[in-house]
Design a protein around this nucleic acid. Structure first.
Length: 833
RNA sequence: GCCCGGGUGGCGGAAUUGGUUGACGCAGAGGACUCAAAAUCCUCCGGCCUCACGGCCUUGCGGGUUCGAGUCCCGCCCCGGGCACCA
């Protein structure tokens, strides 16, 4: 094919020119990034897709196109832009599909990827395909396993037996993040509780930093808010309650014989966490989580049977319904503790509304000022004293409902010498007072849990650990990585809670790397979120086989300059990525601790007002639309249908407007080639458009940028005149990020030999954009009564004179103006009495 | 319950961040071209009143601040998303 051959002479043939330019870009390496030494590197990243069998989703394309426009815009501003693509191909989703069709994901995934690649190439994205990666390649997951080892080395990976979320349908453990309202995020099955040995990452060690750093990240507010919620910081105090009459309770004999380091002879303290230390005078009982380790020691003989029964009952209950059920149940332990504020004994109960995982697993119950405690006290007939009063109340006003306000008018009552203090002051004063007696300290708690990364499944990177009877848990030496995932015919999970890999003896039987004796591999694989928690580090170094990420390249390209993705990953993926980055930073392997300098969450696309779903049959298949309208129209329409960060409504009819715009761009260029005259009005509009588009693209305000170009198109084509080349050329450049193929085609037809993406960005000239006359709105008493045309820098007097010359305006000015407000070039408001 | 978004014509959505509400597009109406249709091009297009000039109303609801409020403040209602027996 000769370069000079144009697919059609004067008609915009999208299919032909898109094919032509995709081939050209590939041949010329137009989209190649000089990763080693390109000037002003700019890393635009989009969340990599899971390559499903259904093919590319419009949601993906919406995200990628938005990112691509931003990247192309940066390139036209002289940056070396790196826009890589990869596949998040491990995980339950792929595996379940593979099970359904009965084909090993090792065969399935490459097919899906090939289809994705084909679709992505049709969309005309500025991807450097030489850096493509898949998390399922051993060359990639070798380093995912390496990452595990780094965390292990630093004491951040540990194994514990824990009650975990078990999905009976997918037959695997789920992270808390993957349980939505008590159901499996993937399949919707009701999640159960199971006790299994699991690997965890100590993300809770980083809770404070993960929260703190959010303050200075340039991210979508919604994403930051979601992370804040998830981390769930709460500031309060831990207070010690001494168990009363402990010796009597435990029985003197027991105490003497078992007087070890545990020293049961000393009455134990119950440590509680509270954010309302101010209400301590109203704490009339304590509640421990049923699993609390102290329960056995303090339970009296009379209550032992009922306490035991209650504990067994809760243990059987699944994690979910325990948290959702609001009815208060519990059992009295027979023990009492001393309230350190009042010095009075209060009963100790156990109840499932207190969770062992949060705080200290024990609370001081203040039924008067906490809804849950109020319910509990009501159920069991416990006293409900008032220790906080509102403006109209006093210490005698009975409580018919819990009073939980802590804002201003609320003051302490019935609280000894603290009575009368506002809540916030009382909090500090009471904690300080108890602190002096070593009965309290200020504490910060987080809702965040450690990250469970074990999966009893097949389709993931094996966790690189070996168990040896002599040496214990031995991490696989780095030189032995990757621990390759074997091809297994029967990869179905079962109820055993053990990974399918445990059935492959030839694979898991190994020699201990330390002592050489018989040992066995860990048969669990790691969570997919670990794969995606570091992929952005891999892209620039995708060609390096000796290191996960090259120091020089990393320094050049990271942190990511612009990250775009869906808010469905606001918590999981984005939080884990930040955590992993911080860990690597602390290990001295990265110079920064936040991976994404700027993040914008894109919105979701619905169709005809309804969420797209297979069952509803309203899923947009990109291939069909690209076939019918061309990628340029499709891309531009996706960007036009709503504000990028909010998404929008995909309506089939709407795409024609965008297509018409591109048609007109085409014919205007063709016409302009047959000469034409430059025109001041058009130039003025052109420069206004350049300014608008240049401002809108960095803000991801793509819909208004396109609207601005359409507006310009109207002016350009107004009347009988033929447009001038100087009026059209810059428009081609402005449109190029949105519709790259047609832009390249028209650009080359105008005689340019280099890509439009290397042509720079049209300059905005304020002088050329300046209006000769502006329309000023004239109001009388704030109501618009007309407009006047005046010079943009005309003063108030001129404007007023002009306004009063207008009959319709003048008739509302019934007396001398009491006041005149003038906003230059905008508005004149005449105020009359 | 708490935390983020959002509510503007028949529809998708604009609005210089306190200054002419409805840009741009879709749908609709009328017209030009055509034997005709498609395509293309032009005009109109929030509601009510008026022959018209023009007037009144209108940004979820109710108040307020201001010369002026879609935009700011107070109190509500509804929709989408996140968190939630987290002490």
């Amino acid at each position: 094919m000769a370069d000079t051959t144009h697919p059609a002479l004067d008609v915009y043939d999208a299919a032909a020119i898109e094919k032509k330019w995709q081939a050209r870009w590939e041949r010329d390496g137009t989209n190649h990034t000089d990763v080693e030494s390109g000037v002003r590197p700019y890393y635009t990243l989009m969340m990599f897709p899971y390559p499903s069998a259904e093919g590319l989703h419009v949601g993906n394309l919406f995200a990628f196109t938005g990112n691509d426009i931003h990247g192309r815009f940066q390139r036209m501003h002289g940056h070396t832009v790196f826009e890589p693509m990869g596949y998040d191909a491990f995980g339950i989703h792929s595996e379940n599909y593979a099970l359904k069709v009965g084909v090993n994901p090792m065969e399935l995934i490459p097919r899906n990827i090939a289809n994705f690649r084909r679709q992505l190439k049709r969309a005309g994205l500025m991807i450097d395909w030489r850096y493509e990666l898949s998390t399922t390649d051993a060359a990639y997951y070798k380093w995912t396993q390496w990452l595990f080892l780094q965390l292990y080395k630093r004491g951040l990976a540990y194994k514990k037996r824990a009650a975990v979320n078990w999905c009976p349908n997918d037959k695997t453990v789920l992270a808390n993040e993957q349980v939505i309202a008590g159901e499996c995020e993937r399949c919707g099955a009701k999640v159960e509780q199971r006790l299994l040995e699991q690997w965890f990452f100590r993300i809770t060690d980083y809770a404070g930093r993960l929260l703190e750093n959010l303050g200075h990240l340039d991210w979508s507010e919604s994403t930051k808010a979601a992370q804040r919620n998830w981390i769930g910081k709460s500031e309060g105090a831990e207070i010690l309650f001494r168990v009363e009459d402990f010796l009597e309770l435990a029985g003197a004999a027991t105490v003497v014989t078992s007087g070890t380091s545990e020293s049961p002879a000393i009455a134990p303290d119950v440590r509680v966490f509270t954010t309302r230390a101010d209400t301590i005078f109203g704490a009339t009982y304590l509640v421990l989580a049923p699993e609390h380790p102290l329960v056995d020691r303090i339970t009296s003989d009379e209550e032992r049977a009922s306490v035991q029964a209650y504990r067994e009952r809760t243990a059987k209950q699944d994690v979910v319904s325990r948290k959702v059920t609001k009815e208060k149940t519990g059992a009295f332990t027979g023990a009492y503790a001393l309230n350190p504020a009042t010095g009075k004994p209060i009963p100790i109960w156990i109840a499932d509304y207190v969770l062992m995982e949060y705080g200290t697993g024990a609370i001081m119950a203040v039924p008067g000022h906490d809804e849950r405690d109020f319910e509990f006290a009501t159920t069991f007939g416990l006293p409900i004293p008032r220790v906080v009063a509102n403006a109209g109340d006093d210490e005698h006003t009975p409580l018919t409902a819990p009073y939980t306000d802590s804002a201003d008018p609320a003051r302490l009552v019935n609280s000894d010498r603290f009575s009368g203090l506002p809540v916030s002051e009382a909090k500090l004063a009471i904690v300080a007072w108890l602190e002096d007696h070593h009965r309290a300290r200020r504490v910060v708690n987080y809702r965040l849990h450690d990250w469970c990364i074990s999966r009893q499944r097949y389709w993931g990177p094996p966790i690189p650990v070996i168990y040896c009877d002599h040496c214990g848990t031995v991490p696989v030496p780095e030189k032995d990585l990757p621990v390759e995932l074997p091809h297994v015919d029967d990869f179905r999970p079962d109820d055993s809670g053990i990974s399918p890999l445990a059935r492959v003896e030839s694979w898991f039987r190994v020699n201990c790397p330390t002592c050489g004796r018989d040992a066995r591999r860990e048969t669990d694989v790691s969570d997919t979120f670990l794969d995606s928690a570091w992929y952005f580090l891999r892209y620039p170094s995708a060609h390096r086989h000796d290191v996960p990420f090259d120091a020089t390249l990393t320094d050049r390209w990271l942190p990511v300059d612009s990250y775009i993705g869906g808010n469905e990953h606001a918590v999981l993926h984005m939080l884990y990525s930040r955590f992993i980055t911080m860990v690597l930073h602390d290990a001295g392997l990265l110079p920064f601790e936040e991976p994404f300098a700027r993040f914008r969450a894109h919105g979701t696309i619905v169709r005809d007002g309804a969420k797209m779903s297979k069952s509803r049959g309203n899923v947009v298949n990109p291939d069909e639309y690209i076939d019918e309208w061309g990628a340029d129209s499709f891309r531009t329409y996706l960007m036009f249908l709503g504000p990028y960060e909010e998404g929008g409504d995909f309506q089939d009819r709407g795409i024609s407007g965008v297509k018409r715009f591109l048609d007109r761009l085409w014919s205007s260029t063709v016409e302009a080639q047959r000469s034409g005259d430059a025109d001041a009005t058009t130039m003025r509009k052109l420069h206004k458009t350049i300014r608008k588009v240049s401002e809108d693209i960095p803000r991801l305000s793509y819909n208004t940028a396109i609207a601005a170009m359409m507006e310009y198109m109207k002016v350009l084509r107004a009347g009988e005149r033929t447009p001038h080349l100087n009026e059209v050329e810059p428009l081609i450049q402005l449109a190029a990020p949105f519709a790259p193929h047609i832009a390249e085609e028209l650009w080359s037809r105008l005689g340019h030999t280099r890509s439009v993406f290397d042509s720079g960005w049209p300059a905005f000239d304020a002088d050329l954009a300046a209006d000769e006359l502006v329309t000023v709105a004239v109001q009388v008493n704030g109501k618009t009564r007309g407009t006047i045309q005046i010079s943009p820098d005309a003063e108030q007097n001129t404007a007023l004179a002009g306004a009063l010359a207008d009959q319709n305006i003048a008739r509302f000015v019934t007396s001398d103006p009491a006041r005149v407000i003038f906003v230059k070039g905008r508005l004149l408001n005449i105020v009359v009495k």
